[in-house]
Write a protein that binds this DNA or RNA. Structure first.
Lengths: 240, 240
DNA sequence: TGCCGTTGATTGTCAGACAGTCATATAGTC
DNA sequence: GACTATATGACTGTCTGACAATCAACGGCA
């Protein structure tokens, strides 16, 4: 009767019980939940019952609740007063807004990268593309493509050297991941993406900040467009 | 021995004890603390000792802690493990980053406003300027100017109709308020601001989204520049 | 003067309790 | 049999008290 989540098929994240290590326990709890949400093991609309979480993660209710506040502030969880937390879901409209915001922020990041980075960073950035190309050519699963693309972003953020912008971007990225579809699931999109990133790296290499920013914004908008189109033909989210 | 904050001179916000009303208690606590921080009644660097907060606000430690997690996620409070929460402080560099991000986001908002709003909204937006002008001409205190400007933003955000962008902007705005100086404390800056906003409204009225976005970004950058210049000649933040 | 152990202040976490509220199942009514 | 009023159960919101672990400051000692 309880333990609904634990019984859920394929709920692999339940294995991640909490063990007392360095970081505050609540941060570990947040991380586990955050990851489960972003990776869609916890589905949008799904209730997060405190008692179930405490049983599953073996921590006290107080700790779980503090974590939930954190996730709430990040927009990954929605709290309905007197009803508790549910995994957040976003509307198409919100998703569109988030993509727009991402375009703006990422452009800024690219601009920063161009302005303040050195040849070494540019080389490293360019170096992240070949693995991506190989993954695409080999028809690897979406997860691996995303991982490869993450490395691109890692270098970009590192070079832009702005914790503020990094934080902003990752919170936006987490929220769009609430949509089930990635633009990368659309046929042909991975190749397009690679082309866009290649062009972007080209502009960065030429130290053309304006052009790079423009390409970047366009890239995000394209991703958003395909992703949302993809989404439009899937089933609706889990009802409350 | 306890009650240090309550005894603090001029700590007017302490009067705001919690009373049980509709919203969850923790939200009231968050609001009180957030406001106290943004209005600089709690200074950057100041420790927020849980016991003192519970005494002052008359709520349990659990409730206070949940609020602190929320403020932490908003970036208004920094938590040092095993030492607890302190009011966040930001470096000049971070502040500059935030202003840049604000410029990007606000431009987007203005663009949205132009794209999707009607004459009525534009009139309302223009209508917020005269009170601002009067406040400036009458040499009213900075607080009142800020309030008048807030009304301008209210209309703008309302017309842009995007909760995502509103949330983003207000979190950025809260964080820069951690700097003590407002650009408005600089001599002549209020008048400049008014001129910039007037030009902005003009572009919006003409439905020129590009120009409006450009003016808006410029406005934010100007505000950032003066604000940070102002800041540079004040005393350093309260040490930990 | 500078190192080190003691002490006090606080945080991190836990368990248990209880009122209030929402949703649902149950019983009673027409 | 459909419909409403009520009882029940499942949870959340909040509080209290407790205790180990850690940090910071103090004072003693070399």
């Amino acid at each position: 009767m309880t333990d609904k989540i634990r019984e859920a098929p394929g709920a692999s994240w339940t294995a991640a019980r909490m063990s007392r290590v360095a970081a505050p326990l609540r941060d570990q709890v947040s991380s586990v939940l955050r990851q489960a949400i972003v990776e869609r093991e916890l589905r949008p609309g799904q209730r997060l019952v405190e008692r179930e979480l405490t049983d599953m993660l073996q921590v006290s209710r107080a700790t779980v609740r503090e974590s939930l506040r954190e996730l709430e502030a990040e927009g990954l969880v929605t709290v309905i007063p007197q009803r508790g937390a549910v995994v957040a879901s976003i509307s198409m409209k919100e998703a569109a807004d988030i993509y727009e915001a991402r375009a703006a922020i990422e452009s800024l990041i690219v601009r920063r990268f161009v302005e303040r980075t050195d040849e070494e960073h540019i080389r490293r950035l360019a170096g992240t593309l070949p693995p991506l190309r190989e993954a695409i050519d080999a028809g690897r699963p979406v997860g691996e493509l995303l991982a490869a693309k993450d490395r691109f972003y890692d270098v970009l953020l590192d070079g832009a050297d702005s914790s503020v912008l990094s934080t902003l971007l990752s919170s936006l990225q987490a929220r769009v991941s609430l949509l089930r579809a990635t633009s990368l699931t659309a046929a042909g999109r991975p190749a397009e993406m690679l082309a866009e990133l290649t062009a972007l790296v080209g502009a960065i290499g030429a130290r053309d900040a304006d052009e790079a920013a423009r390409l970047c914004a366009e890239h995000v908008r394209n991703a958003g467009r395909t992703g949302m189109a993809e989404l439009a033909r899937e089933e609706p989210p889990v009802p409350a």
